[in-house]
Amino acid sequence: MSEPFLIGRDMTGGYGKGPDILHNCTIGVDKGEIAVIVGPNGAGKSTAMKAVFGMLDVRQGGVFLNGKDITKLSPQARVREGMGFVPQTSNIFTSMTVEENLEMGAFIRTDDIKDTMEQVYTLFPILRDKRNQAAGELSGGQRQQVAVGRALMTKPTVLMLDEPTAGVSPIVMDELFDRIIEVARTGISILMVEQNARQALEIADKGYVLVQGANAFTGTGKDLLADPEVRKSFLGG
């Protein structure tokens, strides 16, 4: 078996000098795939994502991107390596316009960003309509589109999303998931943490169920949805 394009392998670690939150946890995603991390509250889902992005100490195990060991790299250095991260909250500049937010996303680039901007506007047409509006005036779903669009402006090979549908309506959730599928079809790997486990697993190539910072179940989205134990314990029957 070849290694996934991005993998956090056997990760044990926590924040600063605090206790371990992750215990021998492994999550990975292949090129152009959608991998979803689900599990109960407090299971360490967002922590696992942050560990892969370099936001907490991995005391054992390692993180590898396209075969390269990036365990010791800062989050900023990981962005330069091709990782984009969209946190759950405080993920846009509310006083800036939509277009200014997207331009801020391209801060590491020295080439022409017009084509990427056009791709983001094609993916999220509402952002084109509202490009001169302050991002803080947008609805929750539109703000999430700005946040994802801004991450795409770095031209990432991996896009990491922490609870992208938190607090949005079911209709907006479906629309965001449709856009996420479109992004994956362009060859970008998607790794996301999601509370709406059933809906997320429906679009997932790969799923990871975490419990108390450790892997409980791993499989394709379809397999996990069909697993009676997963259904009973995590999907409400």
Rank of each mutant, 00 (worst) to 15 (best):
M117G: 01
M117H: 03
T122V: 12
P125Y: 11
I126V: 15
I126C: 10
L127N: 05
D129W: 00
N132V: 06
N132P: 01
Q133N: 12
A135S: 15
A135Y: 02
E137A: 14
L138C: 11
L138A: 10
S139I: 11
S139H: 12
G141F: 05
G141I: 04
G141H: 06
R143A: 10
R143F: 06
Q144V: 05
A147M: 09
A147F: 08
V148P: 02
G149F: 06
A151R: 01
P156D: 09
M160C: 13
D162Q: 09
D162L: 10
E163W: 12
G167P: 06
G167Y: 09
V168R: 07
S169M: 05
P170A: 08
I171Y: 08
V172M: 13
M173N: 02
M173C: 14
M173S: 15
M173W: 00
E175K: 10
L176E: 02
F177P: 00
R179C: 13
R179Q: 14
I180K: 06
A184Q: 05
A184F: 03
R185E: 14
T186P: 02
G187P: 06
I188N: 02
I188T: 15
I190M: 09
V193N: 04
E194V: 11
Q195I: 08
N196T: 06
N196H: 13
A197H: 00
A197V: 00
A197D: 01
A197R: 00
R198V: 01
Q199K: 15
L201F: 05
L201T: 04
E202A: 14
E202V: 01
I203T: 08
A204T: 06
A204Y: 03
K206D: 01
